[in-house]
Simulated assay, not measured.
Amino acid sequence: MTDFTPWSALAGGAMIGLAAGLFAVANGRIAGISGLIGSLLQRGEEGRGEKASFLLGIIAAPLLWRFFSTLPPVHITASPLSLIAAGLLVGIGTRYAAGCTSGHGVCGLSRLSPRSAVATLCFMAAGFATVYFLRHVVAGT
């Protein structure tokens, strides 16, 4: 918690909320990232330009941030195989839960959706359990 910056965290959260709200107003649907990516991969989907622009904005934001501040260093200690396995498991989980952290955790909870509350509790609990298991049972630390 030594690197916690509450004002930038508050600003970032407000910007995520504003972007999700504007996307809902402009498109009539929530900004679930896994759903947006999935619909971009399907032929004949409407609103492809808006969806692609939203996703490109997510990618471009940290690149633009580099002009105003230095980005924190990224240290990945996991093996490429475990990263691939984790990505596949997250993808499978988003299909079973019919959404991801942005769809359920940001947009769904803000709409007071009971289904999103259950989904968010489930994937957060699974994440906590996975980290505990890998760090304290498998690695023995």
Rank of each mutant, 00 (worst) to 15 (best):
M1W: 07
T2P: 01
T2A: 13
D3W: 01
D3R: 02
T5R: 13
S8E: 10
A9S: 13
A9K: 00
A9L: 15
A9I: 13
G12R: 04
G12L: 08
G13Y: 09
A14Q: 03
L18Q: 02
L18W: 12
A19D: 02
A19C: 04
A19S: 11
A20C: 15
L22I: 04
L22N: 11
F23K: 03
A24K: 09
A24R: 15
A24G: 01
V25I: 11
V25N: 07
N27D: 03
N27R: 14
N27V: 00
I30R: 14
I30F: 08
A31L: 12
G32D: 08
I33W: 05
I33V: 15
I33M: 12
S34G: 04
L36S: 06
L36A: 10
L36P: 01
I37P: 03
G38H: 15
S39P: 00
S39H: 10
S39T: 14
R43F: 13
R43E: 13
E45W: 00
E46C: 01
E46R: 13
G49L: 07
E50C: 05
E50Y: 04
K51T: 15
K51W: 01
L56T: 13
G57Y: 05
I59E: 02
A60F: 05
A60V: 09
A61W: 01
L63S: 02
W65Y: 14
W65Q: 11
F68V: 11
F68D: 03
F68W: 13
S69C: 08
S69I: 01
T70F: 04
T70D: 14
T70W: 02
L71C: 05
P72I: 02
P72E: 02
P73V: 06
V74W: 08
V74A: 04
H75T: 10
I76G: 07
I76Q: 01
A78W: 11
S79E: 14
P80D: 08
P80F: 05
L81D: 14
L81R: 06
S82G: 00
A86V: 01
G87A: 06
L88S: 00
L88Q: 05
V90I: 15
G91E: 10
G93L: 09
G93V: 01
T94D: 02
T94R: 05
R95H: 12
Y96K: 06
Y96A: 14
A97K: 01
A97G: 13
A98R: 15
A98F: 12
S102V: 07
G103K: 05
H104K: 06
G105P: 12
G105M: 05
G105E: 08
C107T: 14
L109G: 06
L109R: 07
S110L: 14
L112F: 15
L112E: 04
S113N: 15
S113F: 00
P114H: 07
S116L: 11
S116R: 12
A117S: 09
A117G: 04
V118E: 07
A119L: 08
T120W: 05
L121R: 03
L121W: 10
L121Y: 12
C122T: 11
A125W: 07
V131H: 10
Y132M: 06
F133V: 08
F133R: 06
L134A: 15
V137F: 09
V138R: 09
V138G: 04
A139K: 13
G140E: 01
